[in-house]
Design a protein around this nucleic acid. Structure first.
Length: 283
DNA sequence: GCTTGCGCCTGAATGC
DNA sequence: TGCATTCAGGCGCAAG
């Protein structure tokens, strides 16, 4: 699943493979992939032809390619991939957008089985493209401020995992790394944010940074080949997961079987002993 | 204003 | 065997 480490891996691949090149033509094969490009499919195709890609940037799980005054914004959703593929290679079944380049080098192909991801061309703001102005800095950005985050956590009346998944509080964290960070910090996912003390918040932030950093070093987490980098290669962080997807398997710290709870129509994995359920909980 | 829940989507896994 | 159901998840939006 593309969370911060996976998206950053893709951004680096884009930097290597497409930045500095000029688009020749764009073909949208599934209109849903450009549903957030409000001017429509045809406009998306014509507006990008002949434009050069200046840089590849990222905030949280969003990435964008600077195109002059505009930004080609992408979100990978659940199953999105941006692949550099030789132009003569046949189109795989889930290719949604195909970018061909003037230099006749590799295409950029946006592939997305479930079409939760999307791309759009938008004006590039001073710092961020407008559609993602509400996305908070991720924990690796210079503008990330732990003091502000701590204050906002205390103002919230919700569970700590919900807060970690809220991209307007802190970005880049999804279901997998939220569970992993909470396990490392020894905090239960339903712990009310307003009851977290200073040391607990800093323990949590340290855990978040560690988990994201280690996953990035491993090239991300790949399940069922649903995430691959621009070269089509899988990450190998899955083997390092402590709780996510390990229901009934022993906790790596204490051996207690990992528990899976229903959470927001998905799952929360935790160790019942290392992460005791709080008396008061926000589900 | 803040919090919560739904719909979108496909294919693998599971149930009958 | 084959059909139906469930599940996975991020995001935006609507409802409470």
């Amino acid at each position: 699943m593309p969370e911060l480490p996976e998206v950053e891996t893709v951004r680096r691949g884009l930097e290597q493979h497409v930045v500095g090149r000029t688009i020749d033509s764009v073909r949208v094969l599934h209109p849903r992939a450009v549903r957030r490009h409000l001017a429509g499919t045809a406009d998306f195709e014509t507006a990008l032809a002949g434009r050069s890609l200046d840089s590849a940037r990222r905030r949280g799980k969003y990435l964008w390619l600077s195109v002059g005054e505009d930004g080609l914004l992408a979100h990978l959703g659940m199953t999105g991939q941006l692949l550099a593929v030789e132009p003569q290679a046949p189109l795989s079944p889930h290719v949604r957008i195909q970018f061909a380049f003037k230099d006749e080098g590799p295409d950029l192909r946006f592939t997305d089985q479930r079409t939760f991801g999307h791309m759009c061309l938008v004006p590039d703001g001073a710092e961020l493209p407008a559609p993602i102005a509400h996305i908070a800095p991720d924990p690796f950005e210079p503008s990330f401020d732990p003091v502000t985050l701590t204050r906002r956590l205390h103002q919230r009346h919700t569970g700590v995992k919900r807060a970690l998944l809220d991209q307007s509080l802190v970005s880049g964290i999804g279901n997998i790394y939220a569970d992993e960070a909470l396990w490392r910090a020894g905090l239960h996912w339903a712990r009310p944010t307003e009851t977290l003390n200073g040391p607990e918040v800093s323990r949590l932030l340290t855990a978040v940074r560690e988990v994201l950093g280690e996953a990035l070093a491993a090239g991300g987490t790949t399940f069922d080949d649903m995430y691959v980098n621009v070269d089509g290669e899988s990450g190998y962080f899955e083997r390092s997961l402590a709780v996510y997807g390990r229901e009934d398997e022993p906790c790596l710290r204490c051996g207690t079987p990992v528990r899976r709870d229903p959470f927001m129509n998905r799952s929360a994995y935790s160790c019942p002993r290392c992460q005791p359920r709080p008396r008061r909980a926000h589900w």
